[in-house]
Amino acid sequence: MAAPPSAYKDRHFLAVIGDEDSVTGLLLAGIGHVTQPPDAQKNFLVVDSKTETSTIEQAFDNYTHDRKDIAILLINQHIAERIRHRLDTYTEAFPSVLEIPSKDHPYDPEKDSVLKRVRRLFGE
């Protein structure tokens, strides 16, 4: 029933997809991790208005699907909006995807995929 331990025992890191300020702050907290070269992979993606949606989706897939060392994926809500269909269909327990507010976009519970499920479950 519950996910087997192998699904999460190697998951140590947080990943973040966010705007510059959010990423900077979270990196300051020390979540940043760059794997050893030659295959250096960052666990964060800075998104600005020029970033393609496909890049975001790719990073999302990478963090949620390909990498097995990420426990929590933080994503700015306004960026989550851009790939909302992905989040709505994402139901895995690991990594856990968390929508966070950004400086310029305060948190809106109405848009959160998880809270949407909460409300749907209670039929509100």
Binding site: M1, A2, A3, Y8, E20, G30, K42, A93
Partner: peptide, 29 residues
């Protein structure tokens, strides 16, 4: 300082580990 921070990030200082909690026979991480 954003760029500098992004570039100097190397090793995660802040990490998480996962443990389990048993609720009515269900293991919740």
């Amino acid at each position: 300082i954003g760029y500098q921070i992004q570039e100097s990030a190397k090793n995660a200082r802040f990490r998480v580990r996962t443990k389990q909690e048993n609720v009515s026979g269900v293991f919740l991480p």
